[in-house]
């Protein structure tokens, strides 16, 4: 699983025999794609750094002449004169949502993975795929009963209901990741623990948990990114603007025509930043999470 993480040779060795024109083509193609992937970044960053007087749709691609954080200020704090609601509140709402949702799912997923990997119980071979099916379903198919149920137990409209929702629908993928992770741990280790007299939790605490750190990082990053970026549940289950997560608030900001688009761009950057930071620092684990199953759409 460290295939992706393997770094290329630190020193590039020149082609041994002769100059290869294909390499120019390779770099040209790679650079072309680099432009494609960075095009939105260019427009996001340059626009959000422009002063209000410079923001002009007819000159979208010009570089800012100065350096202005006004767009970010308005996107974050809001602006009364322009009737812009800032993203600050929803940014913190998202953390209030993501942290518990991530931690709880990871812990439960880890225990589930342990059971499935090391305590094969009757019917597990049928139940496991049935659990996994839950991570692929379109959530529209459960949305109406879900909203009704949360409402009946007074968890509709606030973050608690959304946390519960993300924990439950995050379980299949987290269980899968941990199950596969623990499956790689030699059964002899567990065996040895048992001979030492350790019980179910003893084996987990003393043998599996201490070596679970990479697994936890993968799951935490995965779940953090998925929950932070999620929109369908967020807009359907938390309609009260004072507890909305950031994706809903960003859509709200960008959905109104009269909000200047430089503010929308700054808002988009703010909303993208936390998962991007995780990606930049922990891309190795991020990729593992991706490859472990699917991307939640």
């Amino acid at each position: 699983m460290s295939a992706i993480a393997t770094n290329p040779p630190a020193v590039y060795t020149a082609p041994p025999r002769r100059f290869n024109p294909w390499r120019i083509v390779i770099y040209a193609v790679l650079l072309m794609f680099t432009v494609f992937y960075l095009l939105p970044v260019y427009i996001l960053v340059t626009t959000s750094l422009k002063a209000y007087t410079e923001v002009n749709l007819s000159h979208m691609w010009t570089l800012p002449t100065g350096f202005s954080l006004d767009s970010f200020r308005d996107a974050w704090f809001g602006s009364e004169s322009q009737s812009i609601t800032g993203l600050a509140g929803s940014f913190f709402n998202s953390f209030e949502l993501v942290i518990p949702a991530t931690l709880i799912t990871a812990i439960i997923g880890s225990l589930n993975g342990y059971v499935l990997a090391k305590w094969q119980f009757p019917g597990a071979n049928i139940i496991f795929p049935l659990i996994l099916y839950g991570m692929f379903i379109p959530y529209q198919a459960i949305l109406i009963p879900l909203t009704r149920t949360l409402s009946a137990i007074h968890l509709y409209g606030n973050l608690y209901g959304l946390i519960l929702t993300h924990v439950i629908y995050g379980l299949p993928i987290c269980t899968l990741i941990f199950r596969n992770y623990y499956a790689g741990v030699p059964t002899e280790l567990v065996e040895a623990g048992r001979i030492d007299g350790a019980g179910f939790f003893g084996i987990y605490r003393h043998i599996l948990f201490p070596i679970s750190v990479p697994g936890f990082i993968v799951v935490l990053i995965w779940q953090f990114t998925a929950v932070w970026n999620e929109f369908l549940f967020a807009i359907n289950l938390v309609s009260n603007p004072s507890s909305q997560p950031i994706t809903v608030a960003l859509q709200n900001l960008a959905g109104s025509y009269s909000v200047q688009w430089n503010v929308q761009m700054a808002g988009a950057i703010i909303a993208a930043l936390p998962p991007l930071i995780l990606y930049i620092f922990l891309s190795r684990y991020f990729v593992r999470g991706l490859l472990a199953g699917s991307v939640k759409g």
Binding site: W228, N229, F231, T247, L250, A271, L276, Y279, L290
Partner: peptide, 10 residues
Amino acid sequence: MFPLAISFIV
């Protein structure tokens, strides 16, 4: 790969 980290909304 960085676009994978951000939201469809963004």
